[in-house]
Write a protein that binds this DNA or RNA. Sequence first.
DNA 1: TTGTAAGCGTTATCAT
DNA 2: ATGATAACGCTTACAA
Lengths: 343, 343
Amino acid sequence: MSGAARPTSRDVARAAGVSQATVSLVLGGKWRGRVSEPTARTVRATADELGYRPNLAARSLRLGRTRTALLVVPALTHEYFARVYAGAARVAAERGFGVVLYPSPEGIGPARDPFGSARAAIDGVIASSMAADALAGIGDGGRDGGLPLVMLDSDPAAPGEPPTVNLAVADGFRQVTRHLLALGHRRITHLAADVDTWTFRVRGEAVAAELAAVPGAVLATEHCALDIAAARAAAERALSGTGPRPTALLCDGDVLAAGACKAARGLGLRVPDDLSVTGFDDLSLAVAVDPELTSVRLPAEEVGAEGMRALLTLLDGGAPSPSELPVELVVRGSTAPPARPRP
Amino acid sequence: MSGAARPTSRDVARAAGVSQATVSLVLGGKWRGRVSEPTARTVRATADELGYRPNLAARSLRLGRTRTALLVVPALTHEYFARVYAGAARVAAERGFGVVLYPSPEGIGPARDPFGSARAAIDGVIASSMAADALAGIGDGGRDGGLPLVMLDSDPAAPGEPPTVNLAVADGFRQVTRHLLALGHRRITHLAADVDTWTFRVRGEAVAAELAAVPGAVLATEHCALDIAAARAAAERALSGTGPRPTALLCDGDVLAAGACKAARGLGLRVPDDLSVTGFDDLSLAVAVDPELTSVRLPAEEVGAEGMRALLTLLDGGAPSPSELPVELVVRGSTAPPARPRP
DNA sequence: TTGTAAGCGTTATCAT
DNA sequence: ATGATAACGCTTACAA
């Protein structure tokens, strides 16, 4: 009972009584005017019947392309990146491409040999939220010697730089800041991720710029690592320092906001009555905690999808236009007007 | 300026003044006694200098294997699966394998054509937490005609079935149940995921069995989808039905537990004073909410790693022994003795 | 309209 | 100890 080996195009050709070339033409969809309609039909039928599947290795070897893209993300456990992947994979599949993930072990820093042998097996790279030089020497936007590269959520394209697909993070932070200002907050502390990438840098700048325009508004900044415990500690520092306590904590992410809420509660402060807290990313975490977090919704899937489209354009020899996707403030229960100062 | 094309083994051979076969032997690591030490050194040096990388497509074509495994998961956005992937990818990398992800769009149900063209490009499949028949016809544990398959967190291997790597979920649920019993709880409602897979079925059975052994303990079960909102609704049903209210909610996952906590708070019940809530999975969510969740920690990375090891064994012609990985109860603030019955 | 044949880069078999 | 050579399955000139 030896299993029938996987049929090759040659097997299909033999079974259909045609040549291998004809099979390739028909199945490759480039037979218009080169193969007769009936022959094409026969070929397709026998291929179907035999359960023929083209051997991707052979095709890649012949074509010199693999129809595979590499998606480099800092951390897969973050829901945002999982969604970026989903979007990229969807668009890729539509075009017969695959996506392989590379969760950069070094986080956002330069990766030693980011691809290893994978480098030989991919046509292009999509990198999300990485430090500018983390991919040095890897891709160069399509120029000679490097792999075509698209950057997501990164410093917008200077001419000659890799094309980017960005989120309107600055706008998002302007929106939260204005939301807090509109509620009446004037003492705001920015709980910032201590990660040196464009996406985080631009947030601090946006908040600062927005608050600078409002007389009487004072901004403090507290830095911390991107996890709950660090956020909690940082929030405690922010809330128990000398001087007047901030009435709102503006956080770089929902995870940080969750930590901030815990800090507040630990200090006997109620959210949002005594302290407003805002998140960013609008992960499922935002509605898992209590109160639910005012946050900024990011079109993560769309970022991945658009990134993949840009890469495909690049691979087709085109020049993708840089895009910036809008984000949306979602107001929930973690923000409210500041408490009237105690007499 | 035209970039130097990627060097082939032929280029290395020419540069080193040897034949292609010698290069292959040396770089393939099977030159002991077939190539002289100095020659080998030279070859390696020139390969290094030229930056030679074997062409994976060519290798795959020649070898008939791709050194790539497919990991099928119900949902990538769930932190657990992200960690399973990380573990699998780590072990794979150690053995020169790649892992491509397939987040089954249909969740845990049968996937139409789970692999599409990918099927041609992979050596084996690791499937996690899928319904038993979801992969029908895909793999068969290595027998003729199918792809080698390993199942994670699934019905333990019957003879002739695919090998499995399992978590001690039943034991985990026994542990939480005993924890609640030890605290004094007797009216317990199991907030169960309405997903018909082994991993969830076995949980209900474990809880029921454990409670059946305790005189006076009463178990109710409430089913819901695996998201916060559904969990909250289900918990509200459980808590506001007629008859005596349960004093503890034993949930199938941290996500459900988070929803349950919100329900409790919405009904004016304090956790854990008026109601104990337990989670499962011990995601980062467990410590993001307040109070932190008593939960069960799963060695997710190790599941992925062990699954990959099993698949590699399978590919080597071996028969991996089914394994069950231990889990650990983590007691936090969401459980406490039940409130003394109001007089 | 269809068939023949070459070649992608690798590994493995066989000579030498 | 090393080299020539044949295959792996596919696409695509080019020939018929």
